[in-house]
Design a protein around this nucleic acid. Structure first.
Length: 954
DNA sequence: GAGTCAAATCTTTTT
DNA sequence: GATTTGACTC
């Protein structure tokens, strides 16, 4: 890495007071951020918990964490980075909500909904909304119920993100606005009933918490000495409010961004936040730094995108809506070669595809291209047929394409066979799916096709076993006389025992693309468990099976097909080796590639707001619109393609199927927005110097992964195969009551400890314990959708009460509960939670709770030894972090009725290194995907969904 | 050259 | 539904 340039240095060293960093593309923004954090830690001696860094995506957060920890490691500084508030604004808000949950409407085990969940939630409750007067005008009169839910979701999220006043909305004379107000009220009520949160209410609840409890806010803002917000041009109203609340009086806020790369207006983001940032403070207080030296791109590329911005008209009514700046190349020598070119086809799609193929091949053959991952295609969307057509064309010619957002999930063979198989297993489906005689859904054709594809396979001799099994099952399901002990997810795992499906699991999990079929199967298991969760299905019953089938295919699966599913994305690397990336321009934000090919040149600026938007903007938004509404479509368009062009390091290519508008409805490609930039470009066929280009290698960011004792290390040691499926491939386990029991006991004991820690020992009464237990149970079953038999509940409560009895009302020795500890290693982060720390000043014991009977100390020696090692590492971390000496380490078995519930170990400091060494080895095996096991852990197999597969394969 | 109309085409982006 | 273009009018 180069040394900091003078402006970067200023950005790093100005730590006090507000700082605005306008960072152009490729100006070393992340590098500067890393150095700034490093500077705070080493020169300013700031503790990790006093720093907050908000990034735009989880991926960016991971990358930043890795780079900072590597930087510290290089300098030989040991530092607990995990205490830092680092993540997206959403994840930081979530952390604040969890830490202060008792002050919010949220209860334990609340449900987090992604966008699909939220829309499905609204769909299921749509009738409640349709009773609200005039709601049809808001959500559309003549649209499907699913579409209505979609519209409703859009408006509801807008209200949250703009923090609109509901009472004002309800008072509006506009009937739509009024309806929206009432809908929002109802939505809030339903969220509360279901103990649920969606993306935008995460922020809203955090905001409310901070507003309503100034003492929490001031405590937080006293703790957070330094705040840094990346991609500030993409923050919205509520995010800005939250950031300023957290910063408090001292206002050490450093915001970083580029108004030219604001791409998220549809989420309420406005570049006003970054442009007006200095005005929020008394005059001249805010330090402004401009990073405009570019370290990424060939000067010709920089010249090209500078010109793209300059030729646009940013003025409106005498005001300019751009912070005028020019990116300058750094002083390195660049070859004086062509760096911006066009690759174009004519007349028919295939000629364009072929031209691109030829271009790529000639680069590969004559040029310096060493790995396909040096090439990225950027489009507005990768879902349309032109783009998927190109991807298929290249794949057929043996150029692998990585395009996880291209909406191909339901076109994949493995997924279609699964759908076909499920249909085969329920022969009543063709009848059951009709809710009346003339019922018809378009998706049924796809289902029938899947069924056909499956039966074709079934006829093959190698699938004879499957055929026999499936026939028997389908006969059984057709006239179901008693409850099954499985639902869809259970059936899915049974299907995995047959070669037709498990052949997809045999392919390596190494590359993203090779593992795609396995990842797709895993995704299918997640979809099935989610369905069962949302509809409270755990088994098929004779009375309900048909209704379940209908709901599954006519609603759930159908909406998934319509909404589209993104395939697995591997965030641990940069661009997967061996394939060309197809990305949306939004996805490419913050990335760079040696060769960038920008498509979607037929696109043109489009209006993006409705009449209702205008009304809301006029009368209800907190601020006047910053940019004139009529101009935003142009600004957004120019910024989008500016971002795309500036991703290129060595070679930027504009590519399209050129066509002249001829006759009505046809259009010019490239569209008139691009003509001026596109026309002067030389075609790749006209130049020869591109083959001399020295291409950068794709940079290697090795993201540090987190491993926890209980959910990674322990599982791997018990059964590496299980680890492969549940943890690496992320198969979703069929929910089971066994874990519910433990969680319930654990959570209630946690409540007791929390009360004691607050000095409210008198609250630990039999009655309160029962109440805590009840409320934990209620929230848990709502979340897990699994119930405990009454006797099991009683047994769980008994364990908790026994623990309370044994403590005999003496809680004075409790020091801390639920302590998160972590160890940042060279290659990974080890994490764990200590249930309880107790003892006198200066020397403590640590305790881990197990909700079972005390094991046989001799027969179960192996397992106990394992726990001991884990406790030793915990002890080591407690000592390092708090300076307290750990005396003893205990396991506490709440299921032990008679004898001493403790298993106590003496701490053996000498073996810590050995233990950590052992964990290193395990992590090494995990990262190398070495899932070899000597033999099956039979005892565990009984509760493992993969057992059918293992029975066949091991 | 400006304005209007009809017909054809394509209709995201993310936490 | 928004947008583009050609055909049309004035």
């Amino acid at each position: 890495m180069p040394k900091l340039n003078i402006n970067q240095l200023k950005a790093v060293q100005t730590t006090e007071g507000p700082v605005l960093i306008i960072a152009g593309p490729g100006s070393g923004k992340t590098y500067t951020l890393v150095e700034r954090i490093y500077y705070l830690i080493t020169k300013k001696r700031v503790e990790a918990e006093n720093i907050l860094v908000a990034t735009f995506t989880e991926k960016a957060a991971n990358e930043l964490m890795t780079r900072v920890s590597n930087r510290l490691h290089e300098a030989n500084i040991s530092f607990n980075l995990n205490e830092m508030y680092l993540g997206t604004i959403h994840s930081i808000c979530l952390r604040i909500l969890e830490e202060n949950r008792e002050y919010t409407r949220l209860k334990k085990n609340f449900m987090l909904m992604d966008q699909f969940d939220q829309q499905y939630f609204l769909y299921q409750k749509l009738n409640d909304y349709l009773q609200i007067p005039n709601v049809e005008i808001l959500v559309g009169e003549r649209t499907s119920r699913w579409k209505k839910a979609e519209n409703l979701l859009k408006w509801i999220n807008k209200v949250s993100e703009e923090m609109l006043d509901i009472e004002e909305l309800k008072k509006s004379t506009e009937i739509q606005v009024q309806a929206l107000g009432y809908c929002y009220d109802r939505y809030q009520q339903q969220l509360e009933e279901e103990n649920a949160l969606d993306f935008s209410t995460i922020q809203l609840e955090a905001y409310k918490l901070l507003k309503e409890y100034p003492q929490i806010t001031s405590q937080l803002s006293e703790e957070l000495h330094y705040l840094m917000i990346d991609e500030y041009q993409d923050t919205n109203t509520i995010q800005e409010e939250i950031i300023f609340l957290l910063a408090g009086e001292k206002q050490n806020i450093c915001v970083v961004g580029d108004d030219d790369q604001g791409l998220y207006r549809f989420r309420g983001a406005t570049i006003r936040n970054i442009l007006e940032f200095p005005n929020k403070f008394p005059n001249e207080v805010c330090t402004q730094v401009e990073l405009s030296t570019n370290y990424r791109s060939h000067p010709n590329i920089i010249q090209f995108y500078n010109q793209w911005m300059e030729q646009q008209n940013w003025n409106y009514k005498g005001k300019s809506f751009r912070y005028d700046k020019k990116i300058v190349p750094n002083e390195d020598n660049y070859p004086n070669s062509s760096a911006v070119l066009k690759v174009s086809g004519a007349d028919v799609l295939d000629s364009w595809y072929e031209e691109i193929y030829q271009f790529l091949m000639s680069l590969k053959e004559k040029g310096k291209l060493t790995d396909w991952n040096q090439v990225a295609f950027l489009f507005k969307s990768v879902k349309n047929s032109k783009v998927t057509g190109l991807a298929n064309y290249l794949e057929e010619k043996n150029i692998p394409v990585y395009s996880p957002r291209s909406n191909m999930y339901f076109d994949r063979e493995e997924v279609r066979l699964l759908i076909g198989a499920i249909i085969f297993l329920f022969p009543q489906f063709p009848e059951v799916r009709k809710w009346n005689k003339n019922a018809h859904l378009d998706e049924w054709e796809m289902y029938d096709q899947c069924f056909l594809e499956f039966t074709n396979e079934l006829r093959k001799p190698e699938n004879e076993k499957l055929l026999k099994w499936a026939r028997k099952k389908s006969k059984h399901h057709y006239s179901l006389s008693e409850n099954t002990d499985y639902a869809f997810a259970g059936l899915f795992y049974q299907l995995l025992q047959f070669d037709l499906f498990n052949r997809y699991l045999e392919q390596g999990t190494e590359g993203v693309r090779d593992s795609r079929p396995a990842r797709n199967l895993s995704l299918f298991s997640q979809l099935l468990t989610k369905f069962e969760y949302l509809h409270r299905v755990s088994v098929f019953t004779p009375g309900k099976v048909n209704k379940i089938l209908r709901t599954f295919f006519n609603q759930y699966l159908r909406f998934l097909i319509n909404g589209g599913i993104n395939e697995y994305e591997d965030d641990s690397g940069y661009a997967p080796s061996g394939c060309i990336s197809f990305l949306t321009i939004h996805q490419s934000k913050g990335l760079e590639f040696p060769i960038v090919i920008v498509g979607s040149l037929e696109s043109s600026p489009r209006k993006q707001y409705s009449d209702l938007d205008e009304v809301l903007q006029e009368d209800f938004y907190r601020k006047e619109p910053f940019e004139p509404l009529s101009r935003t479509k142009y600004y957004d368009f120019w910024r989008l393609y500016y971002t795309a062009f500036s991703r290129a390091q060595n070679l930027l290519v504009l590519s399209c199927l050129e066509s002249k508008a001829s006759g009505q409805g046809t259009r010019n490609v490239p569209s008139k927005s691009f003509i001026e930039s596109y026309k002067p470009l030389k075609s790749w066929r006209e130049v020869t110097d591109i083959y001399d280009l020295e291409l950068e290698d794709v940079k290697d960011v090795n993201i540090k992964k987190e491993y926890s004792f209980t959910s990674h290390i322990n599982i791997f040691e018990t059964c590496a195969i299980q680890y492969k499926f549940y943890k690496d491939l992320e198969f979703a386990p069929v929910r089971q009551g066994a874990t519910l029991f433990g969680t319930l006991v654990h959570q209630t004991i946690e409540d007791i400890h929390k009360a004691a820690l607050k000095g409210e020992e008198e609250k630990v009464t039999s009655e309160n314990v029962e109440n805590w237990f009840e409320s934990n149970y209620k929230n848990l079953i709502r979340k897990e959708r699994v119930y405990l038999a009454p006797q099991t509940q009683i047994a769980a409560l008994k364990q908790v009460k026994k623990y309370v009895d044994r403590q005999n009302n003496n809680w004075s020795h409790i020091k801390d509960a639920e302590v998160d500890v972590s160890l940042v290693k060279d290659d990974y982060v080890l994490k764990g939670t200590i249930d309880l720390v107790q003892g006198e000043d200066g020397s403590v014991d640590i305790i881990d709770f197990k909700s079972e009977k005390k094991p046989d100390l001799v027969k179960e020696q192996e397992r106990l030894y394992h726990y001991k090692r884990q406790l030793e590492v915990y002890a080591h971390l407690v000592e390092e972090r708090t300076g307290q000496k750990v005396n003893n380490m205990h396991l506490y078995y709440t299921g032990e009725d008679n004898s001493n519930p403790y298993v106590t170990f003496n701490k053996d400091t000498k073996s810590i290194d050995k233990t950590i060494n052992k964990f290193d080895k395990i992590v090494e095996r995990i990262e190398e995907k070495d899932y070899w096991i000597a033999e099956r852990p039979i005892k565990h197999c009984r509760n493992c969904d993969m057992r059918f597969y293992c029975d066949q394969k091991l």
